[in-house]
Amino acid sequence: MTNESDSQGSEAPPEDPVTLRALALLRKAHPDAVVDAVTTGRHPYIEVTADGLCDACLLLRDHDELLYDCCHLVTGVDRPDDQQIEVVYHLVSYARLPDDEYRKRAEKNDPWVALKVRVPRDKPEVPTVSNVWTGADWHERETYDLVGVIFTGREELRRILLPEDWPGHPLRKDWEFPVEYHGVPIVPPEAQ
């Protein structure tokens, strides 16, 4: 995905200061972790490597100028065309509330920073961040449950929404409807 995906107006779209600052500090501290970044448009994000994710998250949480103390959402996006799965983290900060820059972007309803990790589809392993933000725990379990991303380094990775013995991960694009589950038909009997 490129910066051109968002084409509003003819002049160059404005850079997002919140993401820029996080990116600069990340590049300084962990230059190997950052793969790519989109700093303009409606959804700026920083792409990091799976190995560097934990370091990046710790920096985002603990650095005095960043202080992202809450993991808002963890999402898995299945992209079979690229043979990849994207894991997207949206982080917000409550500790930075007096910060002008953060609040200025907050006025546009965008006070968050997004991290992306791309992993191969046949081996979707991402290190956990539930030890960085406790709230990510359930989000990771849900991402595993529905998209099948395996989070490593955490104590247990169980399904959370679906029953334990449910076949497959429904939000994979190639997932197929089972015929029945424990004797209860998923397709109604009249239609069979």
Partner: peptide, 20 residues
């Protein structure tokens, strides 16, 4: 809508509803 992504937050009675 064109190719792209959004993340929108709103204040629900129970807290912040967000949609990606």
């Amino acid at each position: 809508p064109p190719v792209g992504e959004v993340y929108v937050r709103g204040e629900n009675p129970r807290g912040e509803l967000a949609t990606y």
